[in-house]
Design a protein around this nucleic acid. Structure first.
Length: 186
DNA sequence: GGCCAGGACACCA
DNA sequence: TGGTGTCATGGC
């Protein structure tokens, strides 16, 4: 067993299953992926709760809603002006992807302003069940701390994990969630 | 009361 | 390509 796999086993043993991504629908995952950018999940929960209470957590509602109204609902998640703008753009793309029917590509979401690699991969993995390994600041710290891998940029790290793990969507989901949990503690 | 969160982008050299 | 400023709220 390689080091990436054995570290996964220790994380799972220490923290247990994380049950990511907590959401009632696929679209809710997409919304959460954008709102959680550089933001604690607690604050994202408040924003999503506001959207639910306003019965606005659907692609059509979000698109139809006035930007000011959307801003006030997602305010707790911070950066609310740009997030309102970007959430609308992402939602528009999401609808196109769904209506097209075919499996979404990374570029489908990466090309949306405000969606970078981590957010795009989070959407592909957690909303669409497509095995892209999600990299974040914790992951890089995790690699350094355990002398697992030293990469140059995002895709270096992603490829490292994807080459050293079986290509299983459920494993990718759990591993990333565990690394985040690890990162909060250490 | 300061620090930072489940980032991304613009602008600069 | 690398470094820095900006966006903003709420929890600890």
């Amino acid at each position: 067993m390689n080091k990436a796999r054995s570290l996964y086993r220790s994380l799972l043993k220490e923290f247990g299953h994380q049950h990511w991504w907590p959401a009632d629908s696929q679209y809710e995952v997409v919304v959460g992926a954008l709102l959680t950018q550089n933001t604690s999940w607690k604050n994202v929960e408040k924003a999503i709760s506001n959207l639910k209470k306003a019965k606005a957590l659907s692609p059509k509602k979000i698109l139809k809603m006035k930007k000011r109204s959307l801003e006030s609902l997602i305010k707790p998640s911070g950066f609310y002006r740009q997030k309102a703008e970007r959430l609308k753009a992402l939602t528009k793309r999401y609808i196109e992807v769904i209506e097209r029917g075919a499996k979404p590509s990374r570029e489908d979401f990466l090309s949306v302003k405000g969606v970078g690699k981590e957010t795009a991969d989070s959407i592909l993995l957690y909303a669409f069940d497509i095995p892209f390994f999600v990299i974040d600041a914790y992951t890089k710290r995790f690699c350094a701390r355990h002398k697992l891998f030293k990469g140059k940029d995002y895709d270096d790290y992603r490829e490292y994990f994807e080459k050293n793990l079986p290509r299983e969507m459920k494993l990718y989901k759990e591993y990333h969630a565990l690394i985040v949990e690890w990162g909060k503690r250490y």
